[in-house]
């Protein structure tokens, strides 16, 4: 009589199958399946009178997106917001992560402090910022702005996604031996020089890794925009509007392929930097 454990030990393929079948099923059905449905339905249309989905292949949705100016504007605006958020996050995260990894003696406490806001509800944080940014609210009385709008959107999104930039940079700095910084100083380089010539180049893959998060999360966001964006519309808002008010699911799917395409291009671009090994 042999136990299940020893039977599996003699049959490694069976072991592998047992281990991987559930996650593979999830990946294929839930993840790739949803993406496939999205892609297929983007080529359907909606009957203008009945509101029913017409399941016939048509390029009408994409023709509309490519020809009407509003979609190009929203796409460019979304790209601008995602890029601004990413840049702001990099500028804030590099010195913070450097302090955490190389200077502070309370490393773990600081990592926890960075992670804690992620436990709070996204909606609560967004509404907290709505209060902060309101007319005659704290930001308005202290700084006289920025009020609701695209600036507020960039500000709040930067706040939301900053931890996702700090963590990979922090991990990258942890792997950067102190002796490299010492060697640079030893060879005559001052702090700024060491930062430009040694720290930044070694850190670049980590920064790209973080930017994948900040960029894609910003690109797909529609809630923060709704709450603090004033009249600002991003790609996510168009998708949402077509699902809800316009009841045009195929068109929403077609719009949703824009950020997917942008991210594919972005991932291909950063792959060359080695950032994908940092994830």
């Amino acid at each position: 009589m042999t136990s299940l454990g020893s039977y599996l030990h003699r049959h490694p393929r069976l072991r592998l199958a047992g281990l991987l079948s559930a996650p593979l099923l999830w990946l294929v059905v839930a993840y790739l399946g949803a993406l496939a449905v999205l892609l297929v339905s983007a080529f359907w249309t909606v009957n203008g009178f009945t509101g029913d989905v017409v399941r016939e292949f048509s390029l009408a949705n994409f023709r509309t997106i490519l020809t009407e100016e509003v979609y190009r504007n929203v796409t460019l605006r979304s790209l601008g917001v995602a890029a601004s958020v990413t840049v702001i996050c990099v500028v804030l995260a590099v010195p913070m992560a450097f302090f955490m990894a190389k200077v502070s003696r309370f490393k773990n406490t600081l990592v926890i402090a960075i992670l804690t806001p992620l436990w709070a509800s996204y909606l609560v944080k967004a509404y907290a910022w709505r209060i902060l940014l309101a007319n005659d609210g704290p930001m308005d009385s202290v700084f006289g702005g920025p009020g609701y709008g695209i600036g507020a959107t960039i500000l709040v999104l930067s706040y939301m996604w900053l931890p996702y930039m700090i963590l990979p940079i922090h991990a990258g700095l942890e792997r950067l031996p102190d002796s490299l910084l010492e060697a640079s100083a030893d060879l005559g380089a001052r702090g700024g020089r060491t930062f430009r010539s040694v720290v930044l180049p070694v850190l670049l893959p980590s920064i790209f890794a973080g930017s994948i998060f900040t960029f894609s999360l910003s690109l797909g966001d529609y809630i923060t925009v709704q709450i603090v964006g004033g009249k600002t519309q991003l790609i996510g808002n168009l998708v949402y509007a077509n699902i809800g008010a316009a009841n045009n699911l195929p068109f929403a799917a077609a719009i949703a392929t824009i950020p997917v395409l942008i991210m594919v291009v972005y991932l291909l671009a950063v792959r060359r930097s080695g950032a994908l090994e940092e994830l």
Partner: peptide, 17 residues
């Protein structure tokens, strides 16, 4: 500071960039 001293160091882990 190290960059103000006329000494150079060979590190135990070499510390090559």
């Amino acid at each position: 500071a190290p960059f103000e001293r006329d000494v150079n160091t060979v590190f135990q882990d070499y510390a090559l960039f």
